[in-house]
Design a protein around this nucleic acid. Structure first.
Lengths: 128, 128
DNA sequence: ATAACGAATGATAATCACTATCGATACAAT
DNA sequence: ATTGTATCGATAGTGATTATCATTCGTTAT
């Protein structure tokens, strides 16, 4: 049984306080800035436990896992290959098409991940 | 300028011969089985070069990159969390919805990846 | 209270996929 | 033949994540 310890509470608070996509190092650094020092292994375990309990959400990028608040409706992500920023979008029609595809094949969906890669508005404008 | 060397040709042949999703180690092992021994770094570089030239395609899973034939129409993937098998599907409507979302936000799409995780037909049946 | 048990912590070693380095080699153009 | 560019292969390095393990925390049973 998973416990919501002081360390995990601190991680959760940090993620809930800012609307961004955190990796483990960023969490550890941000906590240290506030005088809360947590071992990096504990940060990894804490993030996994919190995601397990549905208190935060995760997206798996190619190089690392990032975590965000869970108190939002489901959404997918636009990842800018220029500046690394991550935007969110919600498109229920895509979800229902996914369900349709899965059903046609007898596949039981447990989860999905849709990433759109490209240039965000700002980076697109900066292109010559 | 990229060259299609003997090593890269061997990798390409192997991928074209079987309809599956290969990782670098699998390629190296399969080639060794046929008496063709290639350094693992060369396999990684070869796969990257071939994908770069559009001769093969890649999908990025959480843990590793996998490569497949490129002589098929565009498709996305169903990844079975039970047996690790990978199915493919094609849903043009999802693609056009993605384009719509991107356009609405001034985002210039360079690529995308849609993974559906869950249980394939076989693994679903095996569940009690 | 306190003993006992399960879970978490934190420092650090280990793992794993992948990339960088570098001397050697292949091949094409001069 | 010489020069140049790209590749090769062995191996060291990288970076994110996980495993190990002795210690500590919290809770429950005595």
């Amino acid at each position: 049984m998973q416990k919501l310890t002081a360390q995990r509470q601190a991680i959760l608070d940090m993620i809930n306080r800012f609307d961004k996509h955190w990796d483990a190092d960023e969490i550890a650094y941000a906590l240290k800035e506030e005088g809360i020092s947590i071992g990096i292994a504990t940060v990894y375990r804490g993030l996994a436990a919190l995601a397990d309990q549905g208190l935060i959400e995760s997206i798996q990028l190619a190089d690392k896992k990032r975590y965000e608040r869970a108190d939002k409706s489901h959404h997918d992500h636009l990842v800018c290959t220029g500046c690394g920023s991550i935007e969110e979008f919600c498109e229920p029609q895509i979800e229902s098409l996914q369900d349709k595809v899965a059903e046609e094949r007898g596949f039981k969906i447990e989860g999905h991940q849709l990433l759109l890669f490209g240039l965000c508005k700002t980076c697109k404008a900066e292109e010559s």
